[in-house]
Computed example of a mutant assay.
Amino acid sequence: MPNSQPTLILVHEPEKACFDRLVADGYPTERATEISSYLAQSTDLAPEFGQLAGACEKRGLAFTAVELDDAPTVLMKADPARTLVWTLTDGVAYFRGGASPALARLNGLKTLGTDDSLFALCQDKFRSGAVLSALGLPVPAAGLARNGAWLVEPPASPAGWFVKPNRLGAKIGIWPDSRITELGHALELSRRVFAHYRDDVVVQPYVAGRNARASFLGLKPEAGVEALGVAFVDSGGDFQTMADSMALYGDTGQAARNAGTYAEPELEPVAASQPAADRAIRAVAQKLIAGLGLRDVFSIDLRVEANDTIHLIEFEVCPGLPCFDFRDYCSRQWGMSLADAMAESAANRLRS
């Protein structure tokens, strides 16, 4: 008999499913491990599905966690009047989570999060940057290189450049030498990225400053940019590498916890030391909401200079919910655990 309760369906792509697919496609094990590590939020949240189910039950909701490969069948059978789909993991290249909101729309189901077109846009940093620039947002200009050849040459930059994959990761540089002073080095990095990951590289003028993240969860339907959590994220380095990222999440992060070597970056509210920058970041978020259609749950990564100049690096429509920073945001902004904040957001969305 069909469930008569309103139901939250959380669709996620597990790391192992991605790993197996990449290996079958010819990626070496080490590369497949690195790439699939971006889906670590599925690994990290899975042990809390029971807590999430309990939090939903308190609010009159049923909860179902669905692996992406099972989503077409599950969503096809779901009741549009009683179902809300929340997509945990995104992707249109190495990962496939961007299919989930499209499947929900195909089956007439409500979704929590932005529309499916933005799931594709945010995964392609060069195209995303072009759109953000057209909206008048402070995003660094960019060049694009593929396997040692320029597709678009980057602008001049006395401070040097920063090189990152176009579709794999948003802000990390993969290797410690990703900040460069010679464009020939950028082409060498593009060859390395292409050989390892089959991806292009974005080459942007290097921008100084501190790393900041703005997190948003529309727990209440009327929540706006005042509910944004804006914090400096200090990991002790100028930028994050692949190794830094893997050390925080998934099985690698859990192993570090078990060994007592796990260390989270420090979070500091931007408003505490740079209130003007905090206001500027909220204004950028408002433009993204109005001009791009961000809603419900998202994050923004930025660089903030000492003079309050801000640089928009990327936006994410599937922020790492079980990550340390989003948990901190839920606690500070909403006074709730992650499970309760997710359940409350879903319940309010289904009522609206």
Rank of each mutant, 00 (worst) to 15 (best):
L248T: 05
L187S: 10
V201S: 03
V201L: 04
G236C: 06
R210M: 09
P205E: 09
V193P: 04
T241F: 08
L189S: 08
A186C: 01
I174C: 08
L217W: 00
A208R: 12
R191G: 14
F232H: 03
Y197A: 00
A170P: 00
A208C: 02
L248Q: 09
D244C: 11
Q240R: 14
E188M: 15
D244M: 11
P176C: 11
V207N: 04
A208H: 11
S215R: 02
S215D: 07
G224V: 07
R192Q: 14
S178Q: 06
G169N: 07
D177Q: 13
S245V: 13
F194Q: 06
R191E: 15
D199G: 11
Y206C: 04
R213K: 10
V203E: 07
L219S: 01
L183F: 02
G169V: 04
A243M: 06
E222K: 12
G173H: 06
S190F: 05
S178T: 07
A227G: 05
V202F: 00
T181K: 12
F216V: 01
R179T: 10
G229H: 14
V233L: 11
G224F: 00
L219H: 04
A212H: 01
G224C: 07
D251Y: 14
V225F: 02
D244H: 14
A247H: 05
L189A: 11
R198S: 10
K164Q: 08
Y197I: 10
W175Q: 06
W175A: 15
G236F: 14
G173Y: 08
P205F: 10
F232V: 02
L228M: 02
Y197H: 02
A186K: 04
D199W: 09
M242R: 15
Y249F: 15
L183I: 06
Y197K: 00
V202G: 00
A227I: 03
F216C: 00
P221W: 02
F232N: 01
L189D: 03
G250E: 01
H185T: 14
K171Q: 02
S178L: 06
E222I: 10
S178A: 15
F194A: 13
S245P: 00
